[in-house]
Amino acid sequence: MTAAASLRTVLDEARRRRKSLVYYASTADEFVEQFDARNVEVRFRESPPLGPEPFAVIRDDGDDGEVRGVVPVATLRAFVEGPRLPDDGTRRLTPEYRAVLELLDDTVFASLDRRQLLLTSREFEDRAWRVGYGTLHVGFQTPAAFRAQASTYRRLAGGSALDVHVYLVANDETDDEANEIPSIPGVTVHTEPASEIRPYWFLVFDGGGTTDQQFALVAEDRDDGTFYGAWTYDPSLVATALGRLPTPGDDFGSADDFGSTDGTR
C-alpha cells in the first residue's frame, strides 16, 4: 500500500463509523443542510417554544448508540459556517472550537474549506507542541503552503524535541522561486515520490510513544477549493495513517516509501 492509499484508508475507515445527530429546536432552519458530513445521519426534532436554545445530541453507531455529547447548535454552527481566525493575531482557539474537535472525531466532512483546515491544523500543531516530543508528519501539498507556515514550524521544531517531517510536491511548471523550500532545523522535508500525495493535507502525530495524545487529520483536495476530510484519535486509524510514513530509524530507502530528505538535519 502506498502512503496515499493509507491516508485514503483512514477516510474510508472513519466513514464506516456511523453517527447520528439529533437537532432540537422550536423551528427548523438551514443547519440540517449545512452539517454536511458523510457518515452522520442528521435529524431535526421540534422542541416546544420557550425551551432551551437549539442544541444537538450526537451519538455513536446511529440512534441507539452511546451519547457522545450534547452541544448548543451555536457551537457547531460556528464550525460549519466557517470559523473566524482570532482578531488579535494569536493562535488561540475558542473553547467552542476545541469542543467541536473533541466531539466530531471520525466524522467525515464533505467539504472543509482552507480556513477550517488551517484552524484545525493549528489546534493539532499545538497539541503536538504541548507533548513536546515524538514524530509529527505534515502534508503541505505545495512549497508555497509550507512557506506560509514557515514561522510556525520554526517555533514548533525549535521550541521542542519534536521530530517534524514535512511532505510536499514541487510544481514542475513554475519557476524555481515558487518551489523554494525553507530550511528549518528539526524539520525534514520529503519531496519524493511526488504526485500521489499531492491531494492530501494531513497532520499525523505518533503521540510521542503514547496512544492518548495521538491524532491524524487527513483531508483530500477535491479540486474545487474544498476538502473531503476527517480527524481521528483512534490508535488503529492513526497507525494506518502512519503505516507508510517514515518512522525514526528508517532509511526511507524502499521504492514504495517517501524518498530522501533535502538534508536540513
Binding site: V22, Y24, G51, V57
Partner: peptide, 8 residues
C-alpha cells in the same frame, strides 16, 4: 436529551 440540552 432535552434536560441536558437545557444545561448545554
Amino acid at each position: 436529551d432535552a434536560l441536558v440540552g437545557w444545561e448545554a
